[in-house]
């Protein structure tokens, strides 16, 4: 009963924030303008155009990316059985940053054919770094979570150092602004053509793990107990790794690496629904999306027109809530 109530509340809040978000922008627009933009769309009306082609995809991208990062955070925490894990544990964020920064610093052409290369290289960077981390974390035909974790930290540090070196050697202040974007994230480049990539990846992953939620909950008891209870630990871990690298890769390539969501939202989910809830993953995705929508809206209200880098907002508003959650006596990471 309580679970259904939380789901309805989350969906309702998502809808409210989307409607509010549609009203924030450079063109003045009230609810009637928004309704008109959807019901009687006029392509020559720039306000209608801004609402349908700029604001809505931005909000939906924030929803999808927030959901993706929270969902992947939940998977990673379950896989390594550690509440400190987040989707960037495999080095995705730093790999993506390095990939994008390499383009801005002239190592790769900024456009090749009709492709704008920073997101492409960000995606490639995320995958390559994840692959290296996985190779380092693979011993005796199985993934060793502790080794994976350490390899992720080491390779991330190396990528961050390389980004730092390139930034230091930068001959242009403008290039540094791109580096900031690729370090903290933004939804400003959202469009209807960009949105399907992270959205399809997320939906596929949600469908896959709708069948694996039970194994995931058992995995949180530890690999030996999970094995004893009939879970194919190795297969489940590979499924998690592949999903996290693809879903996070798309999220980072479209919006930059946004921190903290993947760390805190899984804890919020477990705090509300318990550690082994049947629909934890789906709820976690909803809360992640809602949290990101709220952060994006706040960033644009606080610092118009571009908004503050989204990573700053996620930390500012997420940390106090996270601390409150951890201080609650009845909260536990696993059952």
């Amino acid at each position: 009963m309580m679970r259904s109530l939380y789901f309805i509340l989350a969906l309702l809040l998502i809808a409210i924030v989307i409607v509010l978000g549609l009203q924030v922008g450079s063109f003045e627009s009230d609810l009637s303008t928004i309704a008109e933009a959807f019901l009687n769309y006029n392509p020559d009306n720039t306000t209608h155009y801004a609402i349908v082609h700029l604001r809505l995809p931005r909000l939906l991208l924030a929803l999808v990316v927030g959901a993706s990062l929270a969902f992947c955070g939940y998977l990673m925490q379950a896989m390594v059985n550690n509440g400190l894990a987040d989707p960037y544990l495999l080095g995705t964020a730093s790999g993506a940053s390095l990939g994008a920064v390499l383009v801005f610093f002239g190592f790769v052409e900024i456009t090749i054919g009709s492709f704008y290369m920073p997101p492409v290289l960000a995606m490639a960077g995320a995958f390559i770094v994840t692959l290296v981390v996985v190779i380092l974390g693979y011993r005796k035909r199985q993934l060793i979570p502790a080794q994976l974790l350490l390899a992720g930290i080491a390779i991330s540090s190396l990528c961050t150092a390389m980004v730092g070196l390139l930034t230091f050697l930068s001959d242009s202040e403008s290039k540094l602004k791109s580096v900031i974007f690729w370090s903290m994230g933004s939804f400003e480049r959202a469009s209807w053509t960009l949105l399907p990539y992270p959205a399809v990846a997320l939906i596929m992953a949600l469908l896959l793990f709708a069948f694996l939620q039970k194994q995931l909950n058992i995995l949180m008891l530890g690999s030996e107990r999970a094995q004893a209870l009939g879970v194919q630990v190795s297969h489940t871990r590979w499924a998690i790794l592949a999903t996290v690298s693809i879903v996070t890769g798309f999220a980072v390539a479209t919006s930059g690496p946004i921190g903290f969501v993947g760390l805190i939202v899984p804890h919020v989910t477990r705090g509300l629904l318990g550690t082994t809830g049947k629909s934890n993953l789906l709820f976690c995705a909803f809360v992640g999306g809602l949290f990101m929508l709220l952060c994006d809206l706040l960033s644009r209200i606080i610092y118009p027109p571009t908004g503050l880098p989204i990573g700053i907002i996620t930390s500012f508003f997420g940390v106090p809530f996270f601390v409150y959650l951890l201080s609650r006596k009845n909260y536990k990471f696993s059952s």
Binding site: T46, A50, L54, E188, T306
Partner: peptide, 13 residues
């Protein structure tokens, strides 16, 4: 040298 959004530039026209 401020950063601008696409919407802001559309409005500036």
């Amino acid at each position: 040298y401020p950063a601008l959004t696409r919407e802001y530039i559309l409005k500036l026209n």
